[in-house]
Every structure is written in C-alpha cells, then in structure tokens.
Amino acid sequence: MIEIKNLTKRYGRGDGATTALDNVSLTFEDNKIYGLLGRNGAGKTTLLNVITGRIFADGGAALADGASTRENDTALGSIYLMSEKSGYPDNMRVREGLRWTATFYPEYDAAFADSLCRRFELDTKKRVKSLSTGYASIFKLIVALSSGAKHVLLDEPVLGLDANHRDLFYRVLLERYAEKPSTVVVSTHLVEEVSAVIEDVVIIKRGKLLLEQSRDELLASGYTVAGFADRVNAFAQGRRVIGEDALGGLKTAYIMGARPEVTPDGLELSRIDLQKLFVQLTND
C-alpha cells in the first residue's frame, strides 16, 4: 500500500513559485489498478516522482507499506516507476537493460519479459537510444511489468504506441494483474482507453486532489441527459449540473446524482462516460 500524506511540492521561489502539489493525501491500496488522471501540469508526474524519491517534497510524506520512501532502499525497491524519460543509459542494449533490472529487483520475471519482447516484437539487441518513441515506451513497459515490484507506477505508458500496441498493452496489463496482482497506478491523458482497465480513479486538478473514488461508483454518481435545449434546461432545474454541451437546438447536460428510474418524455438518459466526467470535472 502506498500512502501519501499531506504532500506539498513547489517549484521556484518567491512570486514566480508554482505549487505542483498542494497538501495532497491519498492511498493506493494493495492489488488494485488505479487511474491517476489530471490535465497537463496537474501534478501527476510530480506526485509519482515524489513517491519514488526522485524529487523531494516541500512537505508531507510518501509511505510504501508504512515506511517512508525517502532514501529507503526497501521501500523504494517495492516500487517501479516507468516514467517518460528512461533512466537507462542511451548506449545500453535492451537485453542488458532487462538483465540489470533483474539485479535490482529480485522478483523480476525474466521469462515473462522474454515473452513480452516477443509479443511486442521488441528487438533486444538494439540500443536504447536507437528505439523509436513507441518502442522506447514498449521497452519501459516490459521492464516495469516484469520487475515484480509490489507497486508499479506507469506514467503515460502508451506514449507513442500505435493502436495495436496500446490494445496489446491493456490486455497484457490485465493478464498480468489476474496472474500476479499488484498495485498498478496508470497516469494518463487517454481517459477513455484506460477506463476499461482501472478499478479506482484519482483525479488531480492544479496540484490538489479533486477526487478519489472507485470507477463504478463514480460512473454511477452521474448521468447525462440529452434532448431539446428547453426540455433539458427544465429537467436540469434544481439538479447539480457539472457541464453542458450544446449543438443547435440540442443540448446535453452532465448531472451528478441518482439517475431517475423513469425517463422523462422527449429526453434521453444515459450513463456518463469517464472521459466526459473527467472533462467536466477538470474544466475551469
């Protein structure tokens, strides 16, 4: 379990300082897949970097199984962070990178890594620097998923991957999770894609925790109503509307609360999707 307690991180000093994380507290429980969502600059990457001790918080703490991750090899060794920039030397060959990961992570699954290399058609003789953006992501994904770490954090895991590889990644993630459950945190912009694989949703907005909830609860907590604008407006009266889309005389409203059992005449009620909810919740 990863606990984040009152984490605060600022960049810069004085008037120009930016607060990337503002007193964030949350928990990533064992054996769950989380979606860490937020707009650009929301603080997702900063949060993951602070958890793994790559950067230092100005306040608060990150704990892995109750132990601070700050300069703690045991706690850090229980986490693998796949980040946008790989820490592997550019001139290192892929197979060397895989071998070295096994040195640091005793639970590293070499057979699984080999099978993933074959499934993703990753050439292990290539040097890290010669991999395309997509294959660099695949290399990092294979290392992360094979590391055997108890907590796997994936920051923009499908960056540069084509649709086929993205699909394969989500399947592999679920297969691995079913076979060997672990805590997986997927930080991404591709909300709709990740929606099918995550169990819980964490949304960060401007460095603050906006929401921490199970995906199913979240999706059940709202609905969309669509129809002619005047009817939608009338229906929305007195309800908590988190956003609206209008096109000509038609309108769609995103409403939080229990969905009515009976659909009003001339309106269409439907389940809210995670991406729409995310957009409405994180819009300014």
Binding site: T52, G53, E71, N72, D73, I79, L81, G87, Y88, F104
Partner: peptide, 11 residues
C-alpha cells in the same frame, strides 16, 4: 539516473 530508476537510494 539508472540507480534512481531501479529503486536504489542516493545513500
């Protein structure tokens, strides 16, 4: 960067 990537503390 490699050691930080692989969960090794600075110490």
């Amino acid at each position: 960067t490699m050691l930080q990537q692989n969960g090794v503390s600075r110490r």
